[in-house]
């Protein structure tokens, strides 16, 4: 980005500063998220990708303050510039559902089987805004219609088990949008769906994001989804950010060996038919951390320094950051 005059950067919707999460276990504390920092700008789709167990969901839950009591969380969290890391449980509750919404991977188990879908949507408005039930249910019908559910007047009184998988995910999205949040956290929103439905849901998310002008934190394994939706992305490995940058930059010129391996290992919609290469070895077990760079045992570029020293994140350009001793160090213009 080349700008003539230096403007003060706009306040990001979410700023995460040096987020650390560890879980207490019998063998002491296990570090799951280790010093992750990123900003999500207003209206931006920010993706986090990484292998299973890298700490993506844990980071999302830490942002929402929903981790269990045996988790220890540190770091800064700013929502629209306000500190949300050090607030009361009551203040956090008012935030969730209103300013931050969450949709989870498994839409069936994310809906209460004993209550109608409509009531679960209406409940958000009833509890947070004191909307009368009748009005809230009417709004739920509108929201269901907005997310593309046909016959919403009827559907609103149905129970989750009467919905198909795709419809449940739409209902969850409707619920998340009820109070027009600034930030939508979507943890693998399409994993449980088949390809056609997956595409529809991504399309829906993308159009609704534009319509409501909200920011989206998208956690996914799906490179197709990242390529289609994400403005920026963070590649997570063993609880750390391996690489952060504009999605187009990272796709075009991945700097971290892990990112390159990951891109080769994941199917991409824009390059169908390309042979997939799985990453040899397996990620470290959190209870038994690797010395030096966590990726070095699996790295094709590994040097002697990697076994001793964990690389710092280095800024390349345009907010493109990489944590690798061997990343091409070009002078930064930031």
């Amino acid at each position: 980005m080349t700008v003539g005059v230096t403007l003060p950067p706009p306040t990001p919707t979410l700023r995460v500063e040096d987020l650390n999460v560890s879980f207490r276990s019998r063998a002491g504390h296990v570090d799951i998220v280790r010093g992750v920092s990123f900003d999500i700008a207003k209206g931006e789709v920010f993706a986090i990708i990484g292998e299973s167990g890298s700490g993506k969901s844990t980071a999302a839950q830490a942002i929402m303050g929903l981790l269990p009591d045996h988790a220890r969380v540190s770091g800064g969290l700013l929502l629209g510039g306000e500190d949300i890391a050090h607030i009361s449980a009551r203040a956090r509750r008012r935030l969730l559902g209103q300013r931050i919404s969450f949709i989870s991977q498994d839409a069936l188990s994310a809906l209460n089987p004993c209550t109608t879908v409509g009531y679960q949507i209406a409940e958000v408005m009833m509890v947070h805004r004191g909307t009368p039930r009748r009005q809230a249910m009417e709004r739920a019908v509108e929201l269901l219609a907005l997310t593309g559910i046909s016959a919403p007047e009827e559907r609103v009184n149905h129970y989750p088990h009467q919905f198909s998988g795709g419809m449940r995910q739409r209902a969850l999205i409707a619920m998340a949008l009820a109070l027009e949040p600034e930030l939508l956290i979507a943890d693998e929103p399409t994993t449980a769906l088949d390809a056609t439905i997956k595409a529809q849901i991504l399309e829906l998310l993308s159009s609704l994001r534009a319509r409501f002008g909200m920011s989206v934190l998208l956690i996914t394994h799906d490179m197709g989804a990242v390529a289609r939706l994400a403005d920026r992305l963070l590649v997570m490995y063993a609880g750390k950010a391996a690489e952060v940058g504009q999605a187009t930059d990272v796709f075009a010129a991945p700097q971290h060996p892990y990112t390159r391996a990951l891109l080769r290992s994941m199917p991409r919609l824009d390059r169908p038919g390309e042979a997939l290469v799985s990453i040899p070895g397996s990620p470290p077990v959190p209870s038994n951390p690797v010395a030096g760079c966590a990726f070095h045992p699996r790295c094709e570029q590994m040097g002697e320094v990697c076994m001793r020293i964990a690389p710092e994140e280095a800024l390349l350009r345009d907010g493109h950051r990489v944590a690798c001793h061997f990343a091409s160090r070009e002078p930064t213009d930031a």
Partner: peptide
Amino acid sequence: PQSYVMAARAKGMP
């Protein structure tokens, strides 16, 4: 531990 319980908390329910 069901995810609908987490989802209810994530909706900001008391």
